[in-house]
Simulated scan of single mutants.
Amino acid sequence: MTASTRTTTTIAELPSLKGQELGTSDWFEVTQERVNTFAEATGDHQWIHVDVERAKAESPFGGPIGHGYLTLSLVVPMYSQVLSVSDAKMGVNYGLNKVRFPAPVPVGSRIRLTATLNDVTEIAGGLQLTIGAVIEREGGEKPVCIAELVFRTYA
């Protein structure tokens, strides 16, 4: 699968991209199986995520929804479709400056990431990137996740 739009660059060229949109990932389906696997991995078995029949009957969302942190964790595969740094030896997640989940992700929805390079700072051995991330749901009225991510890329 290829990304809808993608930036391929080098560490030396990254600072020149500050303020620019890096790209948009492909659509990614959030399945009940993925939600259940995430619940097992995290111990978050709240019924709005894993009890399909109860969620259909009692949830204000009309059925089960993905965990907010599941949505956030999907940044990793989607971000890899958006930015490729050809000469980076490794990259690490350094943290989050902020994150919000303005809308739910109903199971069966498709989501995608659009990322903007908000800031670039030199660090020992590489660069620290501050990424503006917006995850939208196909057909949704507002984003399902808005975050400011911090990654470190090493030469």
Rank of each mutant, 00 (worst) to 15 (best):
A147Q: 14
N36C: 10
V82L: 03
T130H: 02
T5L: 13
V50P: 04
T7S: 05
R100E: 14
T10N: 15
I111A: 05
Q32F: 01
I123P: 10
A88T: 03
G132R: 06
Y154D: 12
Y69W: 11
G66C: 12
Y69C: 06
V35Y: 03
K56V: 06
R110I: 03
P104W: 02
N118A: 11
E58P: 02
L127H: 09
L83A: 02
S80L: 02
W27R: 14
A41S: 08
A124G: 11
D87F: 04
I123A: 02
T116R: 08
F28A: 04
P15Q: 12
K142G: 09
K142E: 03
R110V: 08
D87C: 01
V85N: 10
L22P: 15
F151W: 08
H49T: 01
F151M: 08
G140K: 03
K142F: 07
N97K: 15
T10D: 12
P104I: 04
T7W: 11
L127P: 02
I131L: 13
H67Q: 07
I65N: 12
E33Y: 04
A88E: 08
R112T: 12
Y69P: 00
V85T: 06
G43T: 05
A147R: 04
F38T: 01
P60Y: 09
T130Q: 14
I135P: 00
G68Y: 11
I135K: 01
V144L: 12
Q128G: 05
E33T: 05
V99A: 07
P143H: 07
G125Q: 10
H45L: 12
E138D: 10
R100A: 15
E138L: 06
P60E: 14
N36F: 10
R137W: 07
P77Q: 09
T2W: 02
R112N: 03
G140C: 05
L14H: 04
G23L: 12
A88D: 06
S25E: 05
L149Q: 14
F61R: 08
F28Y: 13
T24Y: 12
T116V: 12
Y154F: 15
L74M: 11
R137G: 11
V35P: 00
S59P: 13
V92P: 00
V105E: 10
D44N: 13
L149I: 15
V50G: 05
V144N: 14
D26C: 02
V105H: 10
L14N: 02
T116K: 09
G126R: 05
T2S: 14
E21T: 14
F151P: 01
S109G: 01
V30L: 00
Q32L: 05
T10M: 12
N36L: 08
E136H: 08
E13A: 15
G140R: 14
E58K: 04
S84L: 11
F151E: 15
A12G: 05
P77W: 01
G108K: 07
Q32C: 04
G19A: 14
V105S: 03
R34N: 03
W27K: 04
E122V: 06
G132Q: 01
V150K: 12
A57H: 05
L113A: 08
E122K: 10
A115W: 01
